[in-house]
Each structure stands twice: as structure tokens, then as C-alpha cells.
Write a protein that binds this DNA or RNA. Structure first.
Lengths: 210, 210, 210, 210
DNA sequence: AATGAATGAGTATTCATTCAT
DNA sequence: AATGAATGAATACTCATTCAT
């Protein structure tokens, strides 16, 4: 574990600062002021602001995975897993609003010296992978419709985008009814991916036909 | 028409600069350098950087509406219109990548003095409205499944998010096969909203009755 | 007469602009905007901003002289003339508040390239001269106390400063009761300069001894 | 004591810069150049240029009070105190020419965002108060003539203006014989305020009764 | 006579980073 | 480990002046 307490504290404060002020206003000066430490303490623990940003992205992803994994992996059907993925993701968002807002800010704003997005893309495939695997499983189990390579990717991306879109809405409307929204969204995409012809598929939980 | 040639030129250059370097690096200095004009020429034509940003948002929305309107409004069925909405939107994105990227950058970054997003939220409802109307029309025509107030909004938001999500992907992967992607996405959401004409498809409503 | 109507109009607008916004904010841009003319029209009529400032100083001094001369020169006693000088000066200030404020702003702010006050000092001796002459006349007439070269100059400067001090007060407190103030000030300085030994001189009006 | 050495140094340099170049030319850039420090060092120690200006005003008033207080408060007669006030004030001006010039520049030029003088007026009454008290004391002691509310204020203002007027003259003529000037000015105003009927009052020193 | 677009040096302020203590 | 003073390049914006039309 490379994380000292100080590092962890600064990451935490930075996340809330970015969530509140936005990426551009969240200067190192602001962050250390809110953490009640000196500027030097920042430079001592982080080689640069970029390293802090990397740490933030890392931390938020980790926290998300820690929250979702048990909820998603406990599922026994593809439909149940897709539903659990969407709902636990939105539940995590609801309980960690600042984490999500900060992540969005960092990922869409942090840039390298030559102007490219620092956290651009690299993560995208990694993020879609679990969703694609759920879709493949559902297809093999006969619960979901058949996917081509591309349609699986498009579907996974649409689900991710719909979830991420809520991060933006949360920013504007913090009182959003997330659990209702989550159920609605799960239904929508289950309708979209279910195999159309099998009567047995009628329940959202995706009953396995014998 | 209040737009002088110079204003229009600066807006154009600014859009490409923002698309390439991101909002934060797209300083007035960068923009005028790329436009090969002096700093003063900017201040002469725009009261402030904020005014330029407003102009950019305005310009991109207008250009999008000009492109999509004839394609969408020519449709005679709800399904055709939803498909035309998705496809013409993505086609516009493909032909105006920088416009879309710049719009996204401006909308997610431009802030007022008190730290609030300058173009935040206000637009959201306006943007969803046309989609919701298509869904309503489809419902009334018997082509789409029935929607509650909330499910219509969630569905519209999911469609919008899926489309907007492509802006981000375009940023990272400019070679994206947009027309294939568009057809796939249209199919996905048509599956999701169509009335389950097959009795066996009853799952679309997803309602668990007690 | 070198003054075109345009020049005169611009000088007038500039005086009011400076009075309202202060020297530093009274840019050429502001002035031409308020005059509803283009920037070019300014450059056509004035070689530079400095020339405008000179014209303003000239104009205000002239207007002051035109107002005060008949009132001061009609006097037949030194005391009457000193009183008339003070009172007509303050009366002019009251009726031309913007002129006085603008003059003060220009004289205390306009600088040459090397940082020296553009209208500094040169005028000072010229301004004190008439006052010194009144004092000399009063001394010769036996109405005022005797003055040395220096005491005459110090007294004249004190009177001028007291009058000018009111310009500053007018700036802050436009509702100042100038005529009351003027009478009070005249009394004060008549007390100060009157020959001390003549009991009859004790009245503020500067009684003529028989 | 909140003043660091650097703050004090910058205030000092700023005073001399303003005295030499005037308020408008005394940019932060000029000041830090003359102080041989970087621009950043200024912002580190002062939140804004305005804060520096406030500090300058504070510093000059304080220095003046430190110098004058012992000289004025040691006096035992109203006349002696008025004389000490005028003379110690001018003596301070002579020894701190730049302080006085800078104060005048700042007070007459520094403005708030809405165009009002930043240090306008508010101070005026405070400054006149000590003088008015001296006049009142002299009246009660029978040494000065009777004053109305207004005549006391007008007299105090005239004295202040005469003193301040010398700041302007010092600007133009640094070699001014201040101590001679001061004695002359004290005599002038003692003549103006003394009770006219008491022959014993004729000396400028304000004869102490045996 | 007049226009208004253009210039470029100037302004205060922000900020990530360095470094002696 | 920690401090906080210092740096200097970057930011948006102002403005007197020039000049082609």
C-alpha cells in the first residue's frame, strides 16, 4: 500500500473541492487551503497535480468497484445481473455524488501538455467489457437476443451512456429519484435486449427455461 | 443579422480551437493567434469571452437544428421519426465533429462568476421535449408501448445520453463508423419502445404485478 | 477662433464624463460614445487625448474668468473685492460643479510621459497673482494689515486652498450649502487680514473707516 | 502585528512609486520592478491592489499621528495647540513628502468598481474633528471668538485645506521653506480665530495669563 | 469630415511549481 | 515531514492611436 494517510486525506479533500468548484477552479491552492495544510505538504506527497488527478480517478473507480462487485456478482441470471449492474451503479452514484461529479470533471478536463485528454478513452474499453460479458452470457443462455460484435458494443455503450447521463443530471438536480430512475432504466434496456420470441422470458429477472 | 464576417470567423476558429485543445487551453490568446488577428480585434467584436461562448452554443444548436429538421419532420411514422432523429443526429455529428466536441466542452466547463455551470441544465428539458413528443405520438398511434410520465422522460433521456455518449467516443476515436453505429442504436431503442405485438413479448412493461 | 462646433461639443461631453466617472475611467471610447460620434471624429478634431485635456483646462478657466470678472472688478474697496472674489468663486463652483470637478481631476491626474503632472504648478503663480494684488491694495489703503512678500503669498495660497478644498467636498457632498459657506469663509479671511487696531473693523463686512 | 517585512517593504516602495509617477502609472508591475521582486510576491502578500492602497492610507495616517500626537497634546493653551497642530503637520509633510503626495494621489484617485472614490469623504469628518475640538476649547477658554456649528466647521475645513494645499505646492516646488510657511500660516489663522476685543491676545503665541 | 475595424502594449490577477529553512 | 515565500508565465480585458474607406 503506497497510500499514506496524508495522501488519502488530500485525495478526499480534492474530490469534494472539484465536485463543488469544478475542475478549473479547483487549484492546488484551494485544495490545500480546504485541507488545512501548507502548499509544501502537497508537493511533498505528490509529484505534481497530475499525480493527484490520477489518484482521484483510481480512488473513485476502486470505490465504485468495491460497492458494485458483491451486488453484481451475486446474480445468477444475465437479466438479473444487468439489472443489478444498472441499479447498483445508480445507487452508488446516489451515495457518492461528489465522487461521481469529481470523476466526470477530471476525466473530461484533465489534459496532457499537448492538449489531449489525459484519461481519454484508455478506460473506455475496460469499462464496457463487463457489460459486454453480461450481454454475451445472456445471448448464450438464450435469454437475450443475439448480438454481433458491433451490436454488443453499441448496446453496452448505450447503457453506459444512459447511466453516465444521470451523473450530469445529478449535478443539476441533486434531488433526483435515483432508485425509481434505476428501475425504469433497467426495464428499458431489458426490453431492448431480451430475446423477442420466447414466452418464458416475460419476467424482468429473466427466468431460465428448462 | 447581427453577425459580422469577423465575428463569424472568430466563432469558427474558436470552435476548432476548443475541439482540439479543450476548453481550458482555448484561451483568447490561442484563438486570436490561430485566427491570425490581434488580441484587440477580439475585444472589438466581442464584449467578453463569455459572449463568444454564448455565440458558440447558439451557433452549434442552430446548425444542428438546420440539419436535422428537414430529415426528422419529413417522417410519417413515429418509428421512422425516432430512427430519423437518431440517425440524422449522428450524421450531423459525423460531419461536424468539432462543433459537437466544442459544444460539449463549453457546456460542461463554462461557469459563471459564482461557480455554477453557465449553460447548465436550463437547456435539458428543452432538448428532451421533441423526443418525448415522438414517444407520445408512437404511443397514441399504437406503434409504441404505453409510457408513464416518468418512463417517457427516462427513455428520452436514455436516448439523448446514448447519442451524446458518442460525442465523447468521437473525441477519442475519430474514425468511428457512425452510420453503422446509428443504425444499430436506432434498432436498439426501437426494440425497447415498440409495442410488444407478440403476446409473448409482454415483458416490455416490466411491471411486476403483485 | 480655432474652435469648431464639434471640438466644443466634445470638450463639453468630456467635462461631464470626467466629472461623473473620474479621470481614469474617462477614456476616449467613453467620451465619444457619450457624444454619439465615432472614434475617428475624435482623432480628426484633436491631435491626441492630451490636446483635449488642455482644451478642457482652458475652457474651465475661461468660463470661471468670464463669470467672476464683472463681479470682482466692480468692487470699490479691498474688503469688498476679497469678499466678492471668494463669493463669486464659490457661486461659480455651485453653478458649474462638473466644470470644477473635471478641472480638478484633469489637473491632478494628467501626466506627461515621464510622469510629471502636465498642468502642475505653472498655473499656480498666475492664479495667486490677483489675490496678492487685492491684499496689497488693502494694505496700501490701510484696511488690511501689513504683509511681507511671504506673508502675502501664504495668505493668498491659504485663501485659494480653502476655496479649492470645497471642490473636493462638492465631489463627495453635492448638496453643500455653498452661499452660506461662502459668507462664512469670507468673514474668516477678512478677520485674518484686517488691520487689528481699528475697533471699527471688527464687522465681517469690512467697514470703511471714516 | 500582522505586517511582514515584505508587506512593509512593498508598501514603502509603493508610496515612493506613487509619489513619483502618480496613481495611474503606479501599476503593480512598476511597483514590483522597483522593489526588485517578482509579480507573484506581490499577490502572495496582498490579496489585491486595493488592499495595498488601504495599507498605504493606513500607514500614512498612522505615521502622521505618531509624529503629531506628542507635539500637539503637550500644549497647554488652545492657541498653542492650534499653532502646534499646523506646525507639526507641516513639519511632518516636510520630512515625509512622498507619504503626503502618495496619500493625496490614492485618496483622490482610488475608486471602487462602481466608480465612487474608495476613500472618499468618510475620512473627512474624522479629520476635521480634532481641529473643531481645538476651536471649541479656545472658545470656552475665552481665547477664541465664538463659533456657530457651521463657522467652526468652515474654519476647520479652511485650516485643513490650507495645510493640504501645501502638499500640492510641495509637489511642484520641493524646496519650499516649510517652517517659515508654517509660522506664517499659524499666525494667519490665529488672527482669524482670536477674540477680537482682547488687546492681550495680539501675540501669535497666544499669551498665557499670569 | 467621418467611419469603425484593427493594433499591440498595457492592466491586475491566478497558479503550479521550486526551494531554503 | 512540513512550511510558506518566491517565481514567472499565463489569463481576460482596456485603451489611445492608426488608417483604409
Amino acid at each position: 500500500m503506497e497510500q499514506s494517510k496524508r495522501r488519502q486525506q488530500i485525495v478526499e479533500v480534492a474530490i469534494h473541492t472539484i465536485a463543488e468548484l469544478g475542475y478549473a477552479q479547483a487549484s492546488v491552492g484551494q485544495i490545500v487551503k480546504r485541507a488545512s495544510v501548507s502548499k509544501g505538504v502537497f508537493t511533498y506527497h505528490f509529484a505534481s497535480k497530475d499525480e493527484l488527478m490520477e489518484q482521484i480517478v483510481h480512488e473513485v473507480f476502486d470505490a465504485g468497484a468495491r460497492f458494485m462487485s458483491p451486488r453484481v456478482e451475486g446474480q445468477t441470471t444475465p437479466g438479473g445481473m444487468l439489472k443489478a449492474y444498472i441499479e447498483s451503479n445508480l445507487e452508488f452514484m446516489g451515495g457518492h455524488r461528489d465522487y461521481i461529479v469529481a470523476l466526470t470533471e477530471v476525466v473530461t478536463n484533465a489534459r496532457t501538455a499537448d492538449g489531449k485528454l489525459r484519461f481519454g478513452g484508455a478506460a473506455d474499453d475496460l469499462i464496457l467489457e463487463p457489460l459486454i460479458e453480461i450481454l454475451r452470457w445472456g445471448q448464450e443462455a438464450g435469454e437475450f437476443k443475439p448480438f454481433t460484435e458491433r451490436s454488443a458494443r453499441v448496446t453496452a455503450a448505450a447503457i453506459r451512456s444512459a447511466i453516465d447521463g444521470i451523473a450530469s443530471q445529478l449535478l443539476v438536480n441533486p434531488g433526483l429519484d435515483l432508485s425509481g430512475y434505476a428501475a425504469e432504466l433497467a426495464d428499458l434496456f431489458l426490453s431492448a435486449v431480451h430475446r423477442p420470441s420466447h414466452p418464458a422470458d416475460s419476467s424482468a429477472e429473466g427466468g431460465e427455461q428448462s
